Amino acid sequence: MNKNMKIIVADLFIIFAIVIGYQIFLSMGYKETIEDTNVKHSINIFDDNRNYLLNYEPQIEKDILLKSIVSDVSIGNITVIKADGESFKMTSDVFIGKNKDGVYCATIDKKNIIENIVGIYLSDNYKSITYVYYHIKNYIDNDKKLMVVLLDGFGYNEYKLAKEKDYIPFLSQYYKHTALSVYTPVTNAGYAAMITGQTPNINGVHDRSVREMNVNSIFAYALEKGEKAILLESDIKILNTEIEPILHLDLNKDSDTDDEMFNSCLDAVSGDNDLIFIHFHGIDDRGHAYGTQSEKTLSYINKVDGYIQKLSEVWGKSIILTADHGMHDTEDGGSHGECRSEDMIVPYFIIGE
């Protein structure tokens, strides 16, 4: 090999080494970026009606008592919500702190430390949207027919406003209590929690990208018990369940499929179905487009209230209604996906029990 060839080979080797080293550097940096996005270094503290603190970030040098952070609130129990969707019920005698892994919550004796938390729900009357699963199961076990209505995006604050302005005269008669959604409060995660009875850390559905559940849903249980179940959905299948949903097209071109699903449900109640599950989307759609307090959103809530009244009259049996998540207002409409009161707290209704 002559001298010039040796120089060329050496130069190529150096260039190759630089390229490989740069790629390794980029991959390490990318990995760190991904890991950083999974750690939330601040939390939200809220109850059914308000947010006490949004994006609260404790000092890394010391722990602080929760009761001193929200000193104006009389609380006995709390629910601590982790970034992976798991939640823990605890007394309010806890410390809040921060380390490299994010915000944590610790009991006074430091024997129980919950890391990487995103929110703290202040309530002595904890209820969850996961209760829907067990509520349905109880009806199946007692050989009773049931309709379940998922009012997508219908938060508790929205319900209160609709009631105050008399947009929901029928359904407001059957309000029972508030319920805590799951983190992340989006449709796939909330819907999965309702039909599996499990939080995202167990059922595996954390966000909109996930369709497969790690555990069986209530539809599998209904089939196992020999019950006939029907699932009425919009034009897209949200989750892969043990029964195929009946999808609906916007036949009258009014930019909604709720009316088509309502008509299908009227047909379903006249059949021999034991469990009817219907997923209305229109409240969520208008909340996103116009905000939760807009006249267009409230008027649509009134329309859905009429749907529910008619279904109740024809069905003549028990109905459970709740939402997968709520929604907070933004400058150009509404959004959800945060661990805050508007997104996490929803109303729970029971008709005919």
Rank of each mutant, 00 (worst) to 15 (best):
Ile7Met: 08
Leu12Arg: 00
Ile14Leu: 14
Ala17Thr: 12
Gly21Arg: 05
Thr37Ile: 06
Asn38Gln: 01
Asn55Gln: 10
Leu65Asn: 08
Leu65Ser: 09
Leu65His: 04
Lys67Ala: 01
Ser68Pro: 10
Ser74Lys: 15
Asp84Asn: 10
Lys98Val: 13
Lys100Leu: 09
Ala106Glu: 09
Thr107Cys: 07
Lys111Arg: 10
Ile120Leu: 04
Tyr121Pro: 01
Ser123Gly: 00
Asn138Ile: 03
Tyr139His: 01
Ile140Ser: 11
Asp141Trp: 10
Val148His: 06
Leu151Arg: 08
Tyr159His: 05
Lys160Ser: 05
Glu164Lys: 09
Lys165Ser: 02
Ile168Cys: 07
Ala192Met: 09
Thr199Tyr: 12
Pro200Phe: 06
Asn201Asp: 09
Val205Met: 10
Met213Gly: 13
Ser217His: 01
Ser217Thr: 05
Phe219Cys: 10
Ala220Ser: 03
Glu224Ser: 11
Lys225Asn: 15
Leu231Tyr: 04
Ile238Met: 08
Thr241Cys: 04
Ile246Thr: 05
Asp250Phe: 07
Leu251Thr: 13
Glu260Asp: 15
Asp274Cys: 10
Asp274Leu: 06
Leu275Trp: 02
Asp285Phe: 12
Thr297Leu: 02
Ser299Gly: 07
Ile301Ser: 06
Asp305Ile: 06
Gly306Met: 03
Tyr307Ala: 06
Ile308Trp: 08
Trp315Met: 03
Trp315Ile: 03
His328Tyr: 14
Glu338Ser: 14
Asp343Pro: 01
Ile351Val: 13
